[in-house]
Amino acid sequence: MSRRYDSRTTTFSPEGRLFQVEYAMEAISHAGTTVGILAKDGVVLAAEKKVTSKLLEQDQSSEKIFNLSDNIIAGVAGITADANSLVNYARNQAQKYLLAYDDDMPVEQLAQRLCDLKQGYTQYGGLRPFGVSILYAGFDDHHHFQLYHSDPSGNYSGWKATCIGNNNGTATSLLKQDYKDDIGIQEAMGLAAKVLSKTMDATSLDSEKLEFATITLDPRTKKPVGRVFKPNDIDRLLEKHGLAKPKDPEAAAAAATSAPAQGEAMAVDS
């Protein structure tokens, strides 16, 4: 029945559905998992990197978690090219707001701007929806720490903890069981790692398969700070929670020599 109504984004089916939008959401459900958890002192984003081939050169830059502005970071699931386009748009909007008002853009307002763009792509002929969902983690003075999720239709909603991408149903069930309203940032990082360990196809976790980021307040300036974890920080986090794969002696020695000084290390153990 859908064959008559799924060729355009502007054509509703008799049931009132836009099939092209639903197809975009289906594409996202096959992408790598991305988890967002709101804590009382920060927000955690964690994402699964899909390693398609052992021969592929691994990029050192993040491919699923991005800094949008000083007070907002984002995690994506879906088509990477679409995500890059939306991330660039979001960064431009955040900088325009900063130039106009000399203040960081509120998290919900940036989510609304992107959702306006997404919704426009479901309204005009000759366009297709963006095949990507986004988690926005940020801080502003009015609402403090926040976590939002938007999908290809242009809808967005606020969450305490949520998941997008592959096995999101299983991840959501785990979050419902283990999430607490007074959870701290350290517990949230452990919970995110635990959820990914249960939903990923891999038998063990390491920094080649994961991305982590947090947004917290600097204790001295009281300004939000977004941090995207480096590979050795991710490995330390996984070891702390007993989720890292065993290392051979040579790799362990190399990791020990390349570990950062205590003052430079990410706040994984504090």
Rank of each mutant, 00 (worst) to 15 (best):
Met1Pro: 11
Ser2Gly: 11
Arg3Thr: 00
Ser7Glu: 00
Ser13Gln: 08
Glu15Asn: 08
Gly16Asp: 15
Leu18Gln: 13
Leu18Tyr: 07
Val21Trp: 03
Glu22Trp: 01
Glu22Ser: 04
Tyr23Pro: 04
Ala27Gly: 10
Thr33Asn: 10
Thr34Trp: 00
Leu38Gly: 13
Gly42Thr: 02
Gly42Lys: 06
Gly42Arg: 02
Val43Thr: 13
Glu48Lys: 14
Lys49Gly: 06
Lys49Thr: 08
Lys49Met: 07
Val51His: 05
Thr52Tyr: 13
Leu55Cys: 03
Gln58His: 09
Gln60Gly: 06
Ile65Val: 14
Asn71Ala: 07
Ile73Asp: 00
Gly75Leu: 05
Ile79Asn: 08
Asp82Gly: 09
Asp82Cys: 08
Asn84Arg: 14
Asn84Cys: 00
Arg91His: 05
Lys96Thr: 15
Tyr97Asp: 10
Leu98Cys: 00
Leu98Asp: 00
Leu99Lys: 06
Leu99Asn: 14
Tyr101Val: 01
Asp103Asn: 12
Gln109Thr: 03
Leu110Ser: 04
Cys115His: 12
Lys118Phe: 05
Gln123Tyr: 01
Gly125Ala: 14
Gly126His: 08
Gly126Glu: 05
Arg128Asp: 09
Leu135His: 03
His142Trp: 04
Phe145Val: 02
Leu147Tyr: 03
Leu147Glu: 05
Pro152Ala: 04
Ser153Thr: 11
Ser153Arg: 05
Ser153Pro: 09
Gly154Asn: 06
Asn155Ile: 09
Ser157Ala: 15
Ser157Pro: 03
Thr162Phe: 07
Asp178Arg: 12
Lys180Gln: 15
Asp182Gly: 03
Ile183Lys: 04
Gly184Leu: 02
Ala188Met: 05
Gly190Asn: 06
Leu191Gln: 10
Ala192His: 02
Ala193Thr: 10
Leu196Arg: 06
Ser197Asn: 13
Ser197Ala: 12
Thr199Arg: 04
Ala202Gly: 02
Leu205Asn: 10
Asp206Leu: 02
Asp206Lys: 04
Ser207Thr: 01
Leu210Asp: 07
Thr214Trp: 02
Ile215Gln: 06
Asp218Cys: 09
Pro219Thr: 01
Arg220Leu: 14
Lys222Gln: 11
Lys223Asn: 09
Gly226Ser: 12
Lys230Gln: 14
Pro231Thr: 01
Asn232Cys: 09
Asn232Lys: 10
Asp233Ser: 15
Asp235Asn: 13
Leu243Arg: 08
Ala244Gln: 11
Glu250Ala: 07
Glu250Gly: 01
Glu250Met: 06
Ala251Cys: 10
Gln262Met: 14
Gly263Ile: 03
Ala265Ser: 06
Val268Phe: 04
